[in-house]
Design a protein around this nucleic acid. Structure first.
Lengths: 109, 109
DNA sequence: CAGAATCCGTCGCGATACTG
DNA sequence: CAGTATCGCGACGGATTCTG
């Protein structure tokens, strides 16, 4: 067996790959992280424009989960009109090689 | 915009990352590919033992999709009892860097 | 502008039983 | 041994409306 097994908060067995999928799996998270990592800081509505087809619900939900997991930073300005900026975090930057590989493989196919 | 956009068979816009997720997304495929890439050729029931909790349906379904996409090879021996061996394909090997990154990141967290 | 809340349909995934 | 077939649930994702 070439894999390392861990136990998650529910006592369920998870290998490293399953852990990674749990954090950045799903339809939107890798694409969101990609844009923040390579296009830089974005406001909420700028993110929407970068993600054709995403709804308010999905965007704010995914952003919140990524923020809770410490993969992105959220900076709120108390202005009128409101302004919020999202950026990749230090921890999120460690995903760059993974995101690059996902992008590279998809491009080469 | 730092991403390249393509069009899939349904005319839907997809970026490279979405393409990759379409091929190896989901709960099981990366783990299956990981084992075939690093533990070598496996028979059907050997795969089951490597994937605690997977059901017949999910295993055969995911294996078939991976085979159709050319990421794994399926070799059937006409013996009694039946014997089928699964292995990583040439194309599947190009996913090694990606799988390694998924594994590395999950391990380091 | 940047969201929260609600409702709802799809389908990914699983349990179980059956087959060559 | 190596699969199919059938059934069903629950989460994921989406449309729409409301709010500070």
């Amino acid at each position: 067996m070439s894999d390392s097994i861990t136990v998650d908060e529910n006592g369920k067995l998870k290998c490293s790959i399953e852990y990674t999928l749990g954090k950045i799996g799903g339809k939107w998270k890798p694409v969101i992280l990609w844009h923040l990592a390579y296009d830089g800081t974005q406001r909420y509505n700028e993110m929407r424009r970068l993600l054709p087809g995403i709804t308010h619900k999905m965007l704010s939900q995914q952003l919140k989960e990524l923020e809770v997991d410490g993969l992105i930073d959220r900076k709120q300005f108390n202005e009128v009109p409101p302004r919020v900026e999202y950026s990749i975090s230090e921890k999120g930057l460690t995903l760059k090689p993974l995101l690059e590989e996902m992008h590279r493989w998809g491009t080469e196919q």
